[in-house]
Design a binder for these strands. Structure first.
Lengths: 344, 344
DNA sequence: ATGCTCTCTGTGAGCGTTCACAGTAGAGAA
DNA sequence: TTCTCTACTGTGAACGCTCACAGAGAGCAT
């Protein structure tokens, strides 16, 4: 018996027609005002704006999209398996940064999760159907098929981090992983450390590859012998940090520092070192990467490499919008910063 | 001189008309197949499906939305100030849960951040313009104006956690905070603790109020005197946990346990206790709330209350979709679970 | 036969916008 | 004057879909 449609029954919103009538002009003129106001007389301009204010008019994006073919929205696509998503605080700030940068252009962000094969197919269909104008792609392991599919379909695309194993024609924004790693290892060397272990990220990710490369470069440049017993790989998770450190201690008990490719793994490394009764930083210095909340949460707090996530997100949006606007793909590399804390 | 539009120039996608021609039927029939297939003969049904597969047809949601008035998308609205957003891992899993639950219905999720007054206005406009069918509202402090505005406008709305200070006609899904608190305090009592301090959340949030209420109830039921020197408030942040514990130690140096209304604050409490040379759990037991990653990351690991975030998100989506479908608002309360670890 | 219901199908209209085009008025040049 | 150019305005068409309606045929009772 009740109306059942909430508090204030949703009334029909005003259309461009209502505004035109209210302002005493034609649809066309209102439309022109809405789209930049070129070829509109000041008086008409003002009348329309007043009418818009009075009626509370908001453009119907569906109608607009239908004719323009644009959707004025972009997708934020996550292809990671579950665990990493909510373990890694970087995704969070990246997501927030992108949302805000887009909001400034009045563009809503659609969150898309392609964890399973099934989801991947649905999302590809959705995107290639033109329901978003472009895609912000986060963390594609190498060979992620969705990136090349989208590329193939001509969808504007910006990746976070350099995608490996894809043709070079895809835009990306990344921190200078290699240089960050160099800074950290130089810092460790400067503290007098010589037996520096490293826990890398997955070697099918740019972060995994580049940070290791930086490590090697600095060792070479300092003429410290490269010892492969000092190198183990993790998957960015806490647990893999614990395991990695255990392996390092076993293979090179004399190590006096560890460079860890993520703060989360570094937390794991700290746990293992504590269990092994190594003091940090007295016996072993530990350097992380990311400057995530985990870095300050750790005891002792972590010396780490800050990635400029705020700039990364805003650059991703900038590059994507440029590409939607017809520009060619571009790559942007941003500098990192060493943050010294208690662990070194 | 170049075409400048990426790899494969985006071709015009097939329309319902193309499918109809391909299947040898009319637009109407194709549309009916698309919308449930009632009043369609099996042979037509099959012909249409085949044609859809052959042409790679995907419905144009803008055209559909234009006429139906529905947008087949929902908003995920965050009204928190920045810090909490990416400090609180719960948002993360909530967000993921909602995205997935919606994906099952083929409904994209629009992420909306209303941090500033300005953003709030824009987003309200966007939503009330009908660009989403409903809103999942996360963490409204009391008096959050956006909730009542949306309610007023008749927008289907489901809050995460019981909104306080709003008329009762808004749907929400929440964990049973009070009961979780009761479990934790009973657990501490069972360990022989009698001087149990508490660091509450902000008292303008349901979590703040309810968890404190549970604490009081159990003390009363156990006939342990309530001592207001044992009660301090925080804001769910690490730092406020540190400060809160310091205040507790000062006002009640004899305390033998602390119930902390969030894991993040509990981490702060642990830090302060360590500085004050109180052993955990020997001297002081610490109980958290949330079972966030912070709980396992802490040393010692935290006994805490697990909130069923996966169920919370799926219930939120269920209730919202029901409401969009015309059902009345509903409240859902879900049980919590005590997780025992090293800190008690 | 006639009427009625029931399933199925095609058709026209219209959702709210933008776009292309045509047209008007005024200014300046020839 | 007349012509051209520029600034501005209004008017049909679309865009791709759903919805209401009309109509066709089948089945069954009257």
């Amino acid at each position: 018996m009740t109306m059942n449609n909430g508090a204030g029954a949703r009334r029909k919103p005003p259309t461009i027609h209502d505004v035109a009538r209210e302002a005493g002009v034609s649809r066309g003129t209102v439309s022109r005002v809405l789209n930049g106001g070129h070829y509109v007389s000041p008086s008409a301009q003002e009348a329309v704006n007043a009418a818009i204010r009075r009626t509370g008019y908001v453009v119907n994006r569906h109608a607009r999209s239908l004719i323009t073919g644009r959707s004025d929205s972009v997708g934020f696509l996550l292809t990671e398996p579950q665990e990493r998503f909510f373990e890694d605080p970087n995704f969070n700030v990246l997501l927030r940064g992108c949302t805000q940068a887009l909001a400034a252009h009045d563009i809503p962000l659609l969150l898309m999760l392609a964890g399973t094969e099934d989801e991947r197919r649905r999302i590809t269909r959705y995107i290639t159907a033109g329901h978003v104008d472009g895609v912000l792609l986060v963390s594609s392991h190498s060979g992620d098929p969705i990136a090349s599919e989208l590329r193939e379909a001509g969808v504007p695309l910006v990746a976070c981090g350099k995608p490996i194993g894809i043709g070079s024609k895809v835009s990306y924004v990344a921190a200078d992983d290699r240089d960050g790693a160099r800074d950290m290892v130089r810092h460790l060397l400067a503290q007098g450390r010589r037996r520096i272990g490293v826990v890398t990220g997955p070697l099918d990710t740019p972060g995994g590859v580049e940070r290791l490369a930086g490590y090697k470069e600095v060792l070479a440049e300092a003429e410290v012998a490269y010892d492969e017993r000092l190198v183990v790989s993790g998957d960015y998770s806490r647990a893999s940090g614990e395991a990695g450190a255990a392996r390092l201690l076993e293979r090179a008990p004399d190590l006096d520092a560890v460079f860890v490719a993520s703060d989360l793994m570094a937390q794991g490394v700290l746990t293992t070192l504590r269990r092994a009764d190594r003091r940090v930083p007295e016996d072993v210095a530990v350097g992380g990467f990311d400057d995530s909340p985990a870095a300050t949460a750790a005891t002792p707090s972590l010396t780490t490499i800050r990635q400029p996530w705020d700039r990364i997100s805003s650059e991703m949006v900038r590059v994507l919008l440029a590409q939607i606007g017809g520009e060619d793909p571009a790559a942007v590399i941003l500098p990192t910063e060493l943050v010294k804390r208690e662990s070194t």
